[in-house]
Amino acid sequence: MRQEHALSKLISDPPQSDSYDLEPAAPAKQPEATRIAVRGHILFTFVILLLLALAWKLTKELEILYVSALFAVVLMPIVNSISKLQIRGRHPSRPVSILILLVGVILAFTLFFTFGLPPVLRDLREFTTELPQRIPAVVAKLKRIPMADHIGIESVAQRTEGALSATAGYLFTSLPAWLSHMFDILTALFLCVYFMLEGEYAYHFFLSLFSREHRPRLNQTLLKADVKMSKWLLGQGLLMLILGVASIVVFGILHVRYFLLLGVLMGLFNIIPVAGGIFTILLAALVAALDSWTKMAGVLIFYAIYLNIENGFLIPRIMRSSVNLMGLTILVSLLIGTALAGIVGALVAVPTAALITVLLEEYVVQKA
């Protein structure tokens, strides 16, 4: 009886021991979780491929969108400066400030296309026509220099003539093609205005895609990149304008042929460090040499003086130490931007390089 009682108690109240596994169903759940994870990875990969295909299909539209957003970021400091002005005791609102900026830009472009562009195109047409006829005169002058025959003056002149003629012809013939994209330019202009009006909402939505602990660091990094892009673009534009105006004035005083065209090229190519200045000053010196060695010497002396003024006075005060893009970075970004998107790519190449540089310095570069 005692044995039967002990056996029934053992069955009804089993001993609590670690040898018993009371949850045998846990391993059975693992395959189901694995299947869910695999399906999630497949779906994520499919979505990424679909987005890449959509981006490839909408390359042009994304390009316009990116250019508009970038220029809105660069122009916002100007809008903020205008909004701080007092007009009849009131500060203009953001829409009014944007309107004032647009009116100023449209007025500047109107003056340029009305008074500035026609003389430049006339000089470009004459330069393209007269260059093949004047190269032999320059070669004859250069042959008088000692040891000129040993460096192949004629072959160098022929190659230079072909390169300059091809460049000038491309600039002249491709201008109508650039102007044919007026619809894209207007679209980018309207998008830029909307970004300046409502860009803060889009920016906060972009930050909301990241976790809360990562948002402050990303926000500070993007604000730093914004300052760097704006200062570089505005500063470089001012340096290009100064060099272009100074070149036009000096070349005009020296009575250099096509001085308007050469001054514009001097300003435009100043965006390319070292190489742009060397190319344009050699071109200006060659054109001046078509008339006399005195004009050529005047052009070279002017550029030498300006280069010292720019490096010693203008760049330290315009660019400041906060804008420290290396010349190699600028050159590589211009090459890549031009190869990917032509003129538009060249316009946004350096600001994009500034953005990438700030992101790399913050998240990739290992600081000691």
Rank of each mutant, 00 (worst) to 15 (best):
M240G: 02
L207M: 15
I145H: 01
A353E: 10
L325M: 09
M1W: 11
I309S: 10
L340S: 10
V138D: 07
K231A: 08
I153M: 13
Y258K: 00
I82W: 04
L360M: 13
G104H: 08
T352P: 04
I278E: 11
A26L: 14
N308H: 12
L290R: 13
N324V: 05
P316H: 03
L102N: 10
I106W: 10
V156K: 12
P24C: 12
S247R: 03
A368K: 06
L99A: 14
F302V: 03
A346K: 15
E130K: 14
L290Q: 05
L111K: 14
L290G: 09
R94E: 03
I82N: 00
W178Y: 11
W232I: 14
F115R: 15
I98H: 02
G312V: 00
S292P: 12
H41K: 15
L186S: 05
A284Y: 08
L262H: 06
F183A: 08
K143I: 15
S208Q: 06
S211R: 10
G89A: 00
L222H: 03
P132R: 14
L307M: 11
L209K: 12
E130F: 10
S17H: 07
V358R: 08
L260I: 03
L290K: 10
G342M: 13
H91S: 02
R90N: 12
L51R: 01
K60G: 13
Y306K: 12
T221A: 12
A140S: 09
S174W: 04
L218C: 03
F313E: 05
L102W: 01
Y20V: 14
P118Q: 04
Q16A: 14
D21Q: 15
L335I: 12
N219D: 10
R94C: 00
V332Q: 03
E32Y: 05
E63T: 04
P132D: 15
G342W: 01
I315G: 00
H91M: 07
V249M: 09
A354C: 04
I248F: 13
R317V: 06
S230F: 02
T167W: 15
V67K: 00
H255R: 14
R90L: 06
A69C: 01
L191W: 15
P24A: 14
G152H: 06
M229F: 08
F251E: 03
G312E: 01
L239R: 03
V250D: 07
A137Q: 09
P77G: 02
I305D: 01
E154A: 13
K224Y: 02
L283G: 00
Q158E: 13
W178I: 14
L197N: 01
I135Q: 01
V299T: 13
K84A: 07
I272H: 02
